[in-house]
Amino acid sequence: MPREISLCDIKGLVGSELGVSAWFTVDQSMVDSFADATNDHQFIHVDPERAAAETSYGGTIAHGFLTLSLLSAMNFDCLPRVREQQMGINYGFEKVRFMTPVKTGSRVRGRFTMAEARFRGPSMVMTTYAVTVEIENERKPALTARWMTLIQFDPKDRPSET
């Protein structure tokens, strides 16, 4: 996939895998920082000794919302930029499922398939991605989601056939 695409290309990419991100290591420092940012200090995330003793995970696991929040970095890492884009807006999620806990120290990556693209008004296109966050050496993914974003552009750049 090229690093840059045109608005004219978007509709033709529906159903295509647009990118697979690099691996991101989810270490204890990242988990602790996320716990501080969200005030979620549950022992399963921040106390390795207790988590090893009292859970079946053998140690701490990442917050599900930490894994979800990594989608922004994964997106930036691998998805092509739309040449005419002036601004990208996170519109939300239709569905998020946390499938497998991410053990601290694991590596994760995102896999993005364009599920839908709709032009809205004269200057926006809404894209919906089917996203899977894979855990290295695990059969089941960490999460699956349908993520919607808005791409804002100058109305003069809107393709005529949309």
Results as ranks from 00 to 15, higher is better:
residue 28 Q to D: 14
residue 152 Q to W: 09
residue 107 R to I: 04
residue 57 Y to F: 12
residue 28 Q to L: 06
residue 104 T to N: 06
residue 106 S to A: 12
residue 60 T to N: 02
residue 77 D to W: 01
residue 17 E to M: 05
residue 109 R to W: 11
residue 6 S to T: 14
residue 156 K to N: 08
residue 109 R to T: 11
residue 61 I to K: 05
residue 39 N to W: 14
residue 150 L to P: 02
residue 40 D to Q: 03
residue 150 L to W: 14
residue 94 E to A: 13
residue 112 F to L: 03
residue 54 E to W: 12
residue 87 M to G: 05
residue 76 F to V: 11
residue 87 M to R: 09
residue 65 F to Y: 15
residue 71 L to T: 06
residue 51 A to K: 03
residue 12 G to V: 15
residue 16 S to W: 10
residue 12 G to P: 15
residue 107 R to L: 09
residue 113 T to V: 12
residue 82 V to A: 02
residue 76 F to W: 13
residue 19 G to N: 02
residue 89 I to F: 11
residue 50 R to T: 05
residue 80 P to N: 11
residue 160 S to R: 05
residue 1 M to Y: 03
residue 59 G to Q: 04
residue 58 G to C: 14
residue 98 F to Y: 11
residue 112 F to W: 02
residue 118 R to F: 04
residue 77 D to Q: 12
residue 55 T to P: 06
residue 78 C to H: 02
residue 118 R to D: 10
residue 48 P to D: 10
residue 148 M to T: 08
residue 32 D to C: 11
residue 62 A to K: 01
residue 117 A to P: 05
residue 161 E to P: 06
residue 140 K to E: 11
residue 131 V to D: 01
residue 92 G to I: 10
residue 55 T to I: 10
residue 124 M to E: 09
residue 142 A to L: 05
residue 37 A to Q: 09
residue 40 D to W: 12
residue 79 L to A: 04
residue 103 K to S: 06
residue 30 M to G: 06
residue 134 E to F: 07
residue 52 A to F: 14
residue 14 V to D: 08
residue 121 G to I: 12
residue 105 G to K: 04
residue 99 M to V: 15
residue 26 V to A: 05
residue 121 G to E: 04
residue 153 F to D: 00
residue 87 M to E: 06
residue 28 Q to V: 04
residue 57 Y to V: 08
residue 102 V to I: 10
residue 22 A to F: 15
residue 153 F to V: 04
residue 67 T to W: 00
residue 161 E to K: 11
residue 1 M to W: 09
residue 162 T to Y: 08
residue 96 V to R: 03
residue 137 N to G: 10
residue 35 A to K: 04
residue 61 I to D: 02
residue 153 F to T: 03
residue 26 V to R: 00
residue 61 I to C: 01
residue 52 A to R: 13
